[in-house]
Amino acid sequence: MNTNNSIRLNKVLRELNISLDKVITVFSKLGYEIEARPTTKIDLYLYELLKIELKYDAPVKPVFFNDNLITTPSVINKVREKFGIPKSIYKYYSPTEYSFESVQYKYLYFAKPSDFNDPFDCNNNLISFINENSKNKTRHKSKEKKFAKKMKNVGICCFSRTKDSVLMWSHYASKHKGYISFAFY
């Protein structure tokens, strides 16, 4: 088994907060037999399949709004240093008339956050506008209003560094019926 494309069960158990018995039961129902040891390695495909089967949602972590989160060239450079610049990026599409048209005429659609299928994406209620530096930890109501106003005029177009994510194919490519396009750098 390729170690770059696998994960140990003990890591899966911790991350998903489930028991080894539960994992074995789910895989058995799906027709996969795995060794019932925490040190057993499973393919990343099986790991993604397990998350789908368990309807796993990653825990939501609050985002704190402060001036350091504003995207500036220095912030972008720090992200690039940490993750590197991908050699190619991928866009997952559903097989619709509009998505074929966007590839044919070489344009991108920027969706409003209010149109997202995930209610947690770009949700203002998940952002803390509390001033951490003040003694009373007061809210930045003016920043909160500005942010909400800006979000009404924002469009988002998403890309991926990977072309083989089971979750991306499931969610953004109509349950594996869509396609991807890519760009090389």
Rank of each mutant, 00 (worst) to 15 (best):
A173G: 00
E33R: 13
I89E: 00
I130F: 03
R139C: 10
E81G: 03
D67P: 13
K149H: 11
D115V: 12
N131F: 15
I18K: 04
K91E: 00
E97V: 06
S165W: 05
S114Q: 14
K22E: 15
K152I: 02
R139Q: 14
K91I: 01
T39A: 08
K51F: 02
N136F: 15
T25P: 14
C122W: 08
L46D: 04
D57P: 11
I127L: 04
I7T: 08
F147V: 01
S19R: 01
E53D: 14
D67F: 15
K146F: 09
N123D: 05
Y47C: 02
K152T: 04
I180N: 00
V103D: 12
F120M: 03
L54S: 08
C158N: 01
L13R: 11
K11R: 06
N123E: 00
L20T: 02
H176D: 02
N124L: 15
K82Y: 07
N68S: 14
H140R: 11
I24R: 10
D115T: 14
A36C: 13
M151I: 10
Y185K: 14
K112D: 09
V75H: 12
D43F: 11
F147S: 13
T25M: 12
E53H: 07
Y107H: 10
E48V: 01
S74G: 12
K55P: 07
Y92V: 00
K143V: 15
T96V: 14
D115I: 11
S165G: 00
Y179T: 01
K106V: 08
